[in-house]
Design a protein around this nucleic acid. Sequence first.
RNA 1: GGGGUCGUAGUUCAGUUUGGUUAGAACGCCGGCCUGUCACGCCGGAGGUCGCGAGUUCGAGUCUCGUCGGCCCCGCCA
Length: 596
Amino acid sequence: MVDQLKGIKRTDYCGEMRRKDIGREVTLLGWVDSRRDFGALIFVDIRDRSGMTQVVFNPEISEEAHGTAKQLRDEYVIGVVGKVVARGKSAVTTRLKTGEIEVLASRLFIFNICKTTPFTLSQAEDATEDKRMKYRYLELRRPRLQRNFHLRHKLTLITRNFMTREGFIEVETPFLTKSTPEGARDYLVPSRLYPGFFYALPQSPQLFKQILMIAGFDRYFQIVKCFRDEDLRRDRQPEFTQIDIEMSFIQPDDLFEVVQRLMAEIFALVDKKVTLPFPRIPYQEAMERFGTDKPDLRYSMELHDLTDLLKDSPFQRFAEVITAAGGIRAIMVPQGSVRYSRKDIDGLNSLVRGWGAEGLVTIRFMTDEVRSPLVKHLGEEKCRQIGKELGAKEGDLVIIVAGDYDVITESLGALRSHIAEEQKMFDPEALAFAWIVDFPLFEWNEREGRYHSCHHPFTSPREEDMPYLKSDPPKVMARAYDLVLNGSEIGGGSIRIHRIELQREIFKILGLDKEEVERRFGFFLQALEYGAPPHGGIALGLDRIAMILVGESSIREVIAFPKTTSAQCLLTDSPSPVPEEQLKELFIRVKKPETS
RNA sequence: GGGGUCGUAGUUCAGUUUGGUUAGAACGCCGGCCUGUCACGCCGGAGGUCGCGAGUUCGAGUCUCGUCGGCCCCGCCA
């Protein structure tokens, strides 16, 4: 019933045969993608990782092969021996890359059968995501994911080759390492040999790569898994891959230059041209213009400040906001008055409310008419003036939000990307890179009543801001930078602190006492004392880059075995309980949460 | 932790607004016919815990409450 592989060897991949192969005898090994049975004549599309070929079973060629082909079902694993022939003129198809030829089968082997699959592989119609994850091996068999992982492979290969050519060497750093909680939640690994002690999986190899600089490697990189026990998102998984880079004796420009060329090589994989250098936008400016620190620059629709224009407003609500030191900001949606109905605008309104804003006010610029609730408060002339300020023309829509400065900025930022997405206001194939620079070094944490590092505590302040370190910490800018692509943060890094005095001072400002610093970072501070060179680096999110490279909207599509948004693996059913014995060995007793 | 949304045949979905006879369609699956299909076609057939659990009701896929799961977002992600 089922054949042995014996000496059967593949001569060709299914997707690679062309006219030039006509006349050859080939052996193909793969899966049945679909079967069309005409009784005497049977057509089977055989698929492997390269693509598909149509195989014809004709009893006049081989009675036996034809008889066996009767039994074939979707996803059976088969081998076909046959002759490559030209298709008849009317039978040529553009459906397949191999559409000019077909294989006339003389022998057919069935290596394995297959149960009826829980979803149809050969059709684009998508199964629900939990099914696709439970049967991940079937999902991965589909051409779309095959392509994603082939591209991801090329991405890592290009990166390794490029970095090597640039003089970087890849050094592995430990996965079982020290917990340094000041950041994301750690994944912990219990130590068997030291009861009650734990390793932590690295959130990033940050300190190791800095130590490698101290060790004189000069240029390091690593394609490395990182682990963060935080909630998941479309572009966030608990384990993810970084292209981790560190360089000695550099300024940010030296790093930007290398990373930009790497990006150009990566996106050349999909024949996309990357314009160098990438624009640089200070953090503050990004917030003001786009309402986010990771702006999507494929479209404009920038935020405009109307606070000055409306500062003597007769409209009471606006006056109140301004008195309360808030602001009034707006965006202009081209043809928004045409595209958005009243009801649609209600939807946008609840979106900004979700961001904490009180609500939005619109001005619709119609033919010879301005329609807005503001007309009766401000007059038509003032509304037209607002329109002019934002460059609104007939058919356009101005959306105004007033209130607390941060709230209106962020909610308009969210609105901006929501509208652009919904109205398809940009070329999805475009690439818009930018460096976001001049981040503040610290941010005030209300809950803990102390400063936190915006980036991480090893980030160097700007030289010119050093005087404010003690007197006015929020004023200090960091030598930190993010790399943004199409509204995604795909990397972040900084010039590091390499002098121990400064490092100690930063810890002090962060409110960490000396003992605590010693316990957590002592090993690192000690290293800094032994000739640490000036250095800096970046970590690039490989999964996010891969996602954009292949054109997916979730990194799950570029991770072979991803987890659900509740951090489970539906394929292996992890996490799962472990036998008592195993826990005992680790000196662990589990205390289950109270179920109320 | 919070908000939204989805859950009906193997799969994708309709039916839920306004409770009412035997829960439908397409694809897939099983059997039969077919020598140029590629969304093959034609004939016939099987297939349902309407996510799960309570409740309201003479009667629940439909209403209420709870719960589980997928996805999206906020918080979180140095």
